[in-house]
Amino acid sequence: MTLHLNASDSVSQKILSFLESLTKQGESVEIIDDSIYKFEKQGISQGLKQVENGEIYSTDELLEELKK
């Protein structure tokens, strides 16, 4: 399940404390704030545009480019 939350600071702190208690119990919880969400969304959109434009590179080509 994915949950996007807009809450006051006090409510956010209570929710984060609860989620932290879940992780201490071994539950899996991943928290992504708005800035990370926007960054990842932008990267995915850019990747999809590159695929549409045929700008696909092999791992070897990418690694060579990153070494430059």
Rank of each mutant, 00 (worst) to 15 (best):
M1Y: 11
T2C: 07
L3I: 06
L3A: 10
L3T: 03
H4L: 14
H4P: 01
H4W: 08
L5D: 00
L5K: 04
N6H: 08
A7D: 11
A7V: 12
A7M: 09
S8F: 08
D9M: 10
D9N: 13
S10P: 07
S10T: 07
S10V: 06
V11F: 06
V11E: 13
V11G: 05
Q13A: 12
Q13P: 01
K14F: 06
I15E: 05
I15K: 01
L16W: 07
S17K: 08
S17A: 10
S17M: 09
F18C: 05
L19P: 00
E20C: 01
S21M: 07
S21C: 01
L22T: 04
T23W: 03
K24R: 12
Q25R: 06
Q25Y: 04
Q25C: 05
Q25L: 03
Q25E: 15
E27C: 05
S28Y: 14
S28R: 05
S28C: 12
V29M: 03
E30S: 06
I31V: 06
I31H: 00
I32R: 11
I32S: 04
I32M: 11
D33T: 02
D33E: 01
D33V: 00
D33Q: 01
D34Q: 09
D34P: 00
S35V: 14
S35P: 01
S35H: 11
S35K: 13
I36P: 00
K38V: 07
K38P: 00
K38E: 02
K38F: 07
F39C: 04
F39V: 03
F39Q: 10
F39W: 07
E40N: 09
E40C: 06
K41G: 06
K41M: 12
K41P: 02
Q42D: 09
Q42A: 08
G43R: 05
G43M: 03
I44M: 10
I44W: 04
I44G: 03
Q46L: 15
Q46N: 12
Q46I: 15
G47Q: 04
K49S: 02
K49G: 00
Q50S: 13
Q50M: 13
V51A: 14
E52S: 14
E52L: 03
N53D: 04
N53R: 15
N53P: 01
E55D: 03
E55Y: 11
I56W: 14
I56H: 07
I56Q: 07
I56P: 00
I56T: 05
Y57M: 10
Y57W: 11
Y57F: 12
Y57R: 15
S58V: 00
S58F: 00
S58N: 01
S58L: 01
T59Y: 15
T59S: 09
D60K: 14
D60W: 13
D60S: 10
E61F: 02
L62G: 05
L62T: 08
L63C: 06
E64T: 05
E64N: 08
E65G: 15
E65Q: 13
E65S: 15
L66Y: 05
L66F: 10
L66A: 07
K68A: 10
K68P: 00
